[in-house]
Design a protein around this nucleic acid. Sequence first.
DNA 1: GTCTATATGTCGATAGAC
DNA 2: GTCTATCGACATATAGAC
Lengths: 198, 198
Amino acid sequence: MVEESARAPARTRLLDAAEELFYERGIAATGVDSVLRRAHVAPATLYAHFAGKDHLVAAYLQRRHERWWDVWDDVLERCGDDPVRRALSVFDALAELGSRSRTGRGCAFLGAAVEITDPDHPAHAWLVTGNRLLTDRLRELAAGTGALDADALAAELLLLYDGELAAGRRRATGGSPPPSVAVRDLAAAAVDRHRRAG
Amino acid sequence: MVEESARAPARTRLLDAAEELFYERGIAATGVDSVLRRAHVAPATLYAHFAGKDHLVAAYLQRRHERWWDVWDDVLERCGDDPVRRALSVFDALAELGSRSRTGRGCAFLGAAVEITDPDHPAHAWLVTGNRLLTDRLRELAAGTGALDADALAAELLLLYDGELAAGRRRATGGSPPPSVAVRDLAAAAVDRHRRAG
DNA sequence: GTCTATATGTCGATAGAC
DNA sequence: GTCTATCGACATATAGAC
């Protein structure tokens, strides 16, 4: 992933390069030139595959989303029918994603949401979609636990999830990195609490 | 704050305009031109007050940090000596800040940390400083509660704080806004738990 | 599809008068 | 300190040959 194989298709090399650079340095701060150089691709080739930088950004987010979703699906499958394990799966998936992709700078979607404010941006739809899929699934999993107030539990899980992701960005900021916290344990406690009382 | 008084000093008008635009649309996406137009200030005047856009960004972050810190100090003073109230003060301050400044798009520092990746950027020091002051104070307040593991409690408070701030950004992304959660109650529970057992 | 070379717009910053 | 006018650099995107 660090060195794009020169034999891979240009489109793949472009996406690999874009992913690294957009994630690491930010989207606006990354010029198309940098992507081209890293991918060993000529300008015209990029515009043969993507309508423009904005669409490359959209493809980057789509890819990132699909990878995250695949990981979560895998984890979820391994959970079987245990409703509590399923509700906590998002944190297991988070840990597994960290070992597969670059996550040192926090959540890619959170970062993109900061930089992309125009609703007409081609990538904006992926931000909204990712948002909805996440909240819907959390609600569904929370309801599966038999929690008295499933929406409240889902909101708590989302809070912990966001906190963990934001912390990633905070650590990348430098200075003294704050200590990690066992977020999965906190989530487990939340699930337990909601199963007992409303 | 929406309409900069034309009588205010140029520097103030610039900072007001910069704060609104940087926060609302992002730093990189905001051209110097936009700031100048909104502030009713001529280009040369900006560069008479600031060494460049980067330094305007730094001043923006400094101002934002100081306002946040002032609010938190006020809240903290009203807490008296009650260690639990003091440990939870950050969430009260967050609520109060929301009524004083624009917070609809989440944490300004989190956003800036996404866009500013160069350690040599003039604003980078404020990111690091803000980080350290926050974590130090949380640790201090956590220790004041008599928690058995103050560092762990501080980490939990930070997690909830980050989660709440990230959620703000998520809500701004559009789509179906996730329900808010009573983050202060969760924090209170965390404090309580840490006071009882390690 | 891929290349080299180039057009076009925008942004940050400055010059020089007042 | 403030203005008007403008420069120079860079980034996105395209033209035209292969």
